[in-house]
Computed example of a mutant assay.
Amino acid sequence: MMKKIGFLFSLFFLALILSSCRFFNREEPNTDSSISSSMSEESKISSSSEENSATSSSQEAASSSSSTAEEPDSIDLAAYFPDTNNQHYIYAGEGNEYASYDEYTDYAKDNRKQIRKNNGGTEEVKVIELEKDQIKTRLSRGEAYPRENWLDQEPGEEEGTEILLKAPLKEGTTWPVMGERTRTITGINVSIDTPMGTYETVEVTTEGSEDKVVDYYAPDIGLVKTVFTSDDYNVTSTLSKIETDVPLVQTVRFYYPNADGETLSYVDKELAFKTNDVTKKKIETAYKELPNDAVGSVLSDNTTILSLYLNTDGRVYVDFSKELISEMNAGSAYETLILQSIVNTIGGYYYMNEVYLTVDGQPYSTGHIQKEKGESFTVDTENSSEVQ
């Protein structure tokens, strides 16, 4: 009996120990199944965390990339309309003898500038304007040799505006241009190599039925490259150099009366024009500088050119101050030579044969020569020779 009681007590004590072990194992499980289960949960949590981290990293990377490349809608359009005053842009060309050209800025004011392009064969002038959502050609004229301010000139029927760049500056922005053509932004941050370095550019493609033109614009520079393609014909113009503080130089032929009172002599002078220099003032100053003592003066020291411009009727209009007449002190023959000198000089600069010359806004009138309102003078260089 005592042995039976001892045996039962041993079983009870063993059960109590085992029960205690199970109780403490609830806080720190140490069985293989518990470890396996714990690792499985941690794996799930870790996997989920990595996925979230990867997604977050991806989003951050995308955000960073977007920030680095700059959102297309936020690209500053004005950056592609840089200040080019007194700068000489030189473009090197391939594929055509006129692919190389030079550009100067004749005039600039507020959001407009007048660009002169010379390709060695002809000169073209364009007035470019920056607006809130676009950069456009306001006016364009070919064979524009005289330097005249057209910033405020209204374009004619054949000088319609053409949009060069249009917001938003992002791929796919499209607009129509003259000649039933379409212009599209086909690339952003396109790398273009030039002799001046590599630029990240906006690529703009203009397509017609028979040809394609691709222009590349760099911020703070402007146009850096143009590629024209038509069938197997390719012409490229690439910016190769920018010179600063460089004037446009034009050669102007000035005529003067000779002492014989019968003939004229001429001399070619180089006039240097910086941006916004007034053409009439440059011509006036140069005219008062005599090439030698063998010729007579045309303008007295006090004579000024009040206005000078090419009119739509194909005539050049020039208006002088009253001193042209009051300080002339010449007989009829010499007065005729003075007037012919002026007409030949002004008409020659503008490549026009008719010059409407007035004094203080009135038709030219002296005791020797009388002109009616609207009556012009005609260029005549036959009786002239180069200054010796």
Rank of each mutant, 00 (worst) to 15 (best):
T205N: 05
N258Q: 13
G187C: 04
T205A: 05
S240E: 14
V252Q: 04
V213D: 00
S230G: 12
N276F: 04
D232S: 15
E200Y: 14
I192C: 00
T229C: 09
E200M: 12
Y199M: 04
I192T: 03
D220W: 11
L248H: 11
T279Y: 04
T226L: 11
V190M: 07
L223D: 08
Y199I: 02
V235C: 05
G261Q: 01
T244I: 11
T263G: 01
N276G: 07
S240L: 07
D231M: 11
V249S: 10
Y217L: 01
N258R: 13
Y287A: 15
T205F: 05
T263C: 05
V214G: 10
E207F: 13
N189C: 05
T229S: 15
V267P: 03
I192H: 02
E203V: 03
V204R: 13
S240Q: 15
S240C: 00
P247I: 03
L271P: 04
G197C: 06
P257C: 06
E262C: 12
A218F: 05
A218E: 03
R183C: 02
P195T: 00
Y233G: 06
G187E: 04
D232A: 15
K280V: 02
D232W: 12
T226E: 11
V214T: 15
Y256E: 01
V214W: 13
E203Y: 07
N189A: 08
F228W: 10
Q250G: 09
T186G: 09
D232Y: 14
D268S: 08
Y266W: 09
G261D: 04
Y256S: 00
T194D: 06
K274C: 05
L248D: 10
T194C: 02
D277N: 07
G197D: 06
V249M: 13
I188M: 13
S265V: 01
V252Y: 01
D220V: 14
T198N: 11
N234S: 14
V214H: 10
V267Q: 02
I188E: 00
Y217N: 04
E210G: 11
S265P: 02
V267F: 02
V213C: 12
T229I: 14
D193H: 12
A272L: 13
T206Q: 15
E262S: 13
R183N: 08
K212D: 05
P257W: 10
S230Y: 06
V227R: 14
V249C: 06
E243A: 11
I192F: 01
T244H: 13
A218T: 03
S240T: 09
K274T: 07
I192R: 09
V249A: 12
K212W: 08
S191Y: 06
